[in-house]
Every structure is written in structure tokens, then in C-alpha cells.
């Protein structure tokens, strides 16, 4: 399995766990694996995030992807354990979209680029 695909799966698993701790019991996870970029969408209709929780999710993904952290510590993410490692997840993927609406539920769309990550902005 490609490394980046495995990393994205870990990320999705961690967000799934986050939804579970917030009370969701029916959660859908969908992937779209591309050659240069892959996406995953995690959705549930069971819960709505409070404004504070939505802000937390956005803050987690606010900074850039940090390959030096994601590659080393990435194996800590996505294990079905008691602890959440959302801050680690924030270094592993980019936030594409957060939908948090009555009726729709919560949808978080994340993406991960293939290989050429740089945490520093290229001049």
C-alpha cells in the first residue's frame, strides 16, 4: 500500500474516533485515492458540532502539513484507543471543507498530496 494512502486512512480513523466521542454512532467514511492527491470525507448525521468544537476542528488544521512530524509520529494516529491525537492529524492532512448544518449533520473533507510535501513556503 502506498504510504500516503495509509496516512490518509489513519487521519480518517482519528476523525471517526472524534465523531464517536462526540456521540455519533453512524459514521460514513469515503475515500478518493488519486495519483497526486487523495481525499477522504467523514460524515455523520447523528450530531452537530458546537461553535467551539467547529472552531477547534478548524484550528487543528489551520497550520500547514508538516511532513517531518507526520512521517515520524504518524503511526500514533488512527489507532482505536482512548486518546485522541487530533493535533497530530492536523500535521498530516489539509482541511478542504467543514459542513455543520441542521439536517445535513457534520461533514469533514480532508486531502493529502502525494509525496512532495514541504512545510515551508517555497520562495
Amino acid at each position: 500500500m502506498k504510504f500516503d494512502a495509509a496516512q490518509l486512512m489513519r487521519v480518517a480513523e482519528e476523525v471517526l474516533k472524534y465523531f464517536y466521542t462526540k456521540g455519533a454512532r453512524s459514521v460514513k467514511v469515503a475515500y478518493d485515492f488519486g495519483t497526486e492527491r487523495s481525499f477522504c470525507a467523514i460524515s455523520t448525521k447523528d450530531i452537530l458540532l458546537t461553535a467551539e468544537e467547529e472552531d477547534y476542528v478548524r484550528r487543528v488544521f489551520e497550520g500547514p502539513v508538516q511532513p517531518e512530524i507526520a512521517n515520524y509520529y504518524g503511526t500514533l494516529a488512527g489507532r482505536r484507543r482512548d486518546e485522541l491525537v487530533m493535533e497530530l492529524v492536523g500535521t498530516m492532512a489539509e482541511l478542504e471543507d467543514v459542513q455543520n448544518e441542521e439536517g445535513l449533520g457534520v461533514v469533514i473533507v480532508l486531502s493529502r498530496r502525494e509525496q512532495e510535501y514541504r512545510s515551508a513556503r517555497k520562495k
Partner: peptide, 18 residues
């Protein structure tokens, strides 16, 4: 494989890193 340099969104993180 094409190489796409990663362009992170501007945030306080970049300033802090500098």
C-alpha cells in the same frame, strides 16, 4: 510523477516559524 510544491495557507504559524 509530477512534483507539486506544497503551498500552505498563510497563517500565524509561518510568522512564528520565522
Amino acid at each position: 510523477m509530477a512534483i507539486f510544491p506544497y503551498e500552505p495557507p498563510q497563517s500565524g504559524f509561518d510568522t512564528d516559524a520565522r
